[in-house]
Amino acid sequence: MEFKTFVFYVMAAILVFAAVRVVTARNPVHAALFLVLSFFSASGIWLLLEAEFLAITLVLVYVGAVMVLFLFVVMMLDINIERMRQGFWSNLPVGALVGILLVVQMALVLGGRYFGVEAMPAPPAASETYSNTREIGRLLYTEYVYPFELASLVLLVAMVAAVTLTLRKRKDARHLNPAEQIAVRREDRVRLVSMPAEKDQQP
């Protein structure tokens, strides 16, 4: 077995294990951390495919930012595991149906004539100076610039919507202006009072 194949199988095994644990872990924080592990393994597999930009971005965006916020929320929730598990058997048929449908769809696409392993020949080996990042950037900003900008706009709208939906003005919150605070001089706050010293002090 080639070394790269070996690495792939190790990564894939960890990925599958972590993904299963995300669903089965009893503790939600453990589940979130297993999700982090599965992101890592997926990024390792992408690295094997020589997609270093996507692989590192996966870690940067999902592990570095999204999952941190996820953990943040999960840690503060008081989740009752028993209540979560109550509807398991009644929801099982629906879940199973969706799962089977997904498997069938993927089998159709991957096993079909157009997207199967046979239909996609292995790409030629990249040259020494080939930069994955540069190529992706070139494609995104030339050929696919309109879809790219459109996608960013959709994200922006979603972001603004999320902020406006959750923003509440609190009447009891006091706003402090740091510029004003810094601009305060000694004379504004302190008054020096000159008082006569007491004359007859008892020893």
């Binding site: 982090v36 270093e52 930009f53 590192i56 870690v59 940067l60 592990v63 840690m75 990042t133």
Partner: peptide, 20 residues
């Protein structure tokens, strides 16, 4: 690495996990 700067940024973003 070709993407060394990106790698640094990604690794730097992992530092928060220890604290959390």
């Amino acid at each position: 690495l070709n993407a060394g700067l990106l790698f640094l940024l990604a690794v730097a973003s992992l530092e928060v996990y220890g604290v959390i």
